[in-house]
């Protein structure tokens, strides 16, 4: 989980209901083709935020991945970014190939959004394309020499490869544990845990919960929730961060527990996590 504002949209401590009441589903879908670029940009975000998975929405969002009208002075593609982010939330596999194509986009943020959404869609067909992007940061088994290397959205790529269980990439992920940017290190530790299940990588994240910067502690909470690392439960409950974020993180642990047991009984671990969550409400 990276710490870009968009990622926090659903989990900021203030993550309060954005009132979408002013827009209907039909209007939002129609607005994707509005002459007003601002309306298009907002509609793409809105369709993702409210999980409007209608075929018409998906089709138009996929078309928006090739938009040329909405450009920033630096050459970025705002509408493509929002369309890319929305398609991850809608869970429609039709978006997989168009999103893979976005990994070649000249705009860093479009590549990042595509990697994040491909992670959410969970289709392993994107693994080779993600690897291609990851190795941009490597010379053999080491990081490229000019550091910090910010040329690719490594955080999102590493997280996607971990979630997709691409165990063949372990040797390529490992060097990123030494990346000068902490968030990239965490993403690598998170992926390594998912790929190897070795507690050492989970512990590395737990240690980071005691770090100085709130921004980083927030990111680690999201990482631990994503990997469901049960031994982190107490550390999560005690870290200095907003309760909303701790609750989301612990929910990740809880759901991980429930996924791994027979549906008839709650494990000791699940009950422990529930009691911690109750104490944070």
């Amino acid at each position: 989980m990276n710490s870009s504002p968009q990622k926090f949209e659903d989990l900021s401590a203030t993550g309060d209901n954005t009132d979408g009441g002013s827009l209907t589903v039909e209007q939002a879908i129609a607005n994707l083709e509005s002459a007003d670029l601002g309306l298009r940009f907002y509609a793409a975000w809105w369709l993702g935020r409210f999980r409007i998975g209608k075929p018409a929405a998906v089709t138009k969002l996929i078309a928006a991945l090739e938009d040329e009208a909405d450009r920033t002075p630096e050459g970025g593609y705002p509408l493509r970014r929002n369309a890319g982010r929305a398609l991850g939330k809608l869970g429609d596999r039709q978006a997989v190939l168009p999103l893979i194509a976005c990994l070649d986009c000249s705009d860093f943020y479009v590549r990042e959004a595509a990697a994040q959404s491909l992670e959410m869609l969970g289709d392993p067909v994107c693994i080779p394309a993600l690897i291609k992007l990851l190795v941009v940061g490597l010379q053999g088994e080491q990081l490229v020499s000019h550091q910090p290397d910010l040329s690719q959205p490594y955080e999102a790529i590493l997280e996607a490869l971990g979630t997709l269980k691409a165990t063949e990439v372990i040797p390529l992920v490992k060097p990123f544990l030494e990346h000068p940017i902490e968030l990239v290190q965490y993403a690598a530790a998170r992926a390594m845990y998912q790929l190897t299940q070795e507690p050492a990588y989970g512990e590395r994240l737990v240690k980071a919960l005691a770090g100085e910067r709130l921004q980083l502690r927030r990111a680690v909470l999201a990482d631990l929730g994503a990997i469901g690392y049960l031994p982190a439960a107490d550390a999560i409950a005690q870290t200095l961060a907003e309760n909303s974020l701790k609750l989301i993180s612990l929910k990740g642990l809880l759901e991980h527990q429930v996924n791994h047991i027979t549906p008839s009984t709650l494990s000791e671990g699940a009950i422990k996590v529930i009691n911690l969550m109750d104490s944070l409400l």
């Binding site: 929910k251 809880l254 759901e255 429930v258 996924n259 709650l266 699940a270 529930i274």
Partner: peptide, 13 residues
């Protein structure tokens, strides 16, 4: 939400 359903089960118990 799986987390909510899990909490419900715990409450029922």
């Amino acid at each position: 939400d799986l987390g909510v359903r899990t909490r419900v089960k715990f409450a029922q118990e």
